[in-house]
């Protein structure tokens, strides 16, 4: 074992892992974090706390993670390359680890253009691939990125994102290979709706043996309505929502759409369990945390293993 991370232990014991996420509030309301975490706590092995998601200022990921940690749960901090240079990143990694956080996700971050501070200067001192390398080097060699020794280095279990759909498609497996080379331990994918394309990507991943190096959690987002499906298809960068998904939601009444969305997510997970290389699921139920438990149960992944 490289770390104390519960997620690492779940993988090591050969279980299908389940993670989900909590978006911190745009203010200081601790209750919101606790409430959201309470809704999912018994059904997941780790809880991502997003980091200024969609380039909107929120309670920091590390602060949210400490709140979740204090509830006896297992937070996964997210860190975007947009908001910090390498000094701030390493300081925060050490800080987070000192506060009991042992799992993190390295991300590029959405461009500030889309957020509530479009006049900000984005940092991008190191990219997500070099962030992975930096934090795994801190753990494995006990060195700062600048080369000096760390007294009591942080031991983070390190994740990253992958988008199996963005064009050019051939580049997508190569990009994962690059993250694997940088030392990443696990991947949470972009929300998957296009199952055929995901299967093709997974095949490319397994053909190169990358599934042996990196644990891949398939991204699941239940659709609340056909409106949401259309929005994701047309407005969210890098999303691939096939017409069948929209048609199926259109096929039921407006009141029935949420139920249909949940059903679709569960069916998807059942199918994915059979895909070689899928090591677990990352459920992104956007402002719909209350339904995560039912999805996990529906997919036959409850109770969660005690590790």
């Amino acid at each position: 074992m490289k770390t104390e991370s519960r997620l690492e232990k779940v993988f090591a014991a050969g279980h299908i892992a389940v993670t989900s996420e909590v978006g911190p509030p745009r203010g200081c309301d601790v209750d919101i974090v606790e409430k959201k975490a309470n809704m999912i706590k018994d059904h997941v092995d780790g809880i991502n706390i997003t980091d200024n998601q969609t380039a909107m200022v929120r309670m920091s990921s590390i602060a949210g993670a400490v709140i979740v940690k204090n509830m006896g749960l297992d937070p996964i901090i997210q860190m975007v390359a947009r908001d910090r240079n390498r000094l701030a990143m390493q300081a925060d990694i050490i800080g987070a680890y000192s506060l009991g956080i042992n799992t993190m996700l390295c991300l590029s971050g959405d461009h500030p253009k889309f957020g509530d501070h479009p006049t900000a200067k984005a940092v991008y001192d190191v990219d997500s691939v070099n962030m992975i390398k930096m934090v795994t080097d801190m753990r494995d060699t006990g060195k700062f990125q600048g080369g000096a020794d760390i007294k009591m280095p942080p031991k983070m279990f390190v994740g990253a994102a992958a988008n199996p759909f963005a064009d050019p498609f051939e580049l997508r497996v190569a990009r994962l290979a690059k993250k694997a080379k940088a030392g990443v331990d696990f991947i949470q994918t972009q929300c998957i709706f296009n199952m055929d394309k995901f299967e093709t990507w997974m095949k490319g991943v397994c053909d190169r043996g990358l599934d042996k190096e990196v644990k891949i959690l398939a991204g699941i987002t239940p659709m609340k309505s056909v409106g949401m499906a259309r929005y994701m298809k047309n407005k969210v960068p890098g999303m691939d929502v096939p017409d069948e998904v929209i048609k199926r939601l259109e096929g039921v009444s407006k009141e029935q759409q949420p139920e249909e969305g949940i059903k679709m997510a569960i069916e998807q997970m059942e199918r994915m369990k059979e895909i070689p290389g899928v090591a677990g699921f990352h459920i992104m139920a956007i402002e719909w945390e209350e339904r995560v438990a039912e999805i996990v149960e529906g997919a036959g992944l409850y109770p969660r293993p005690q590790v």
Partner: peptide, 20 residues
């Protein structure tokens, strides 16, 4: 690259164009 990524592309690229 809108993010000056040395190891891109990021996940935001859409139909071969930049997320911006």
């Amino acid at each position: 690259c809108s993010k000056s990524l040395l190891n891109g592309p990021c996940g935001g690229t859409s139909a071969g164009q930049c997320e911006i």
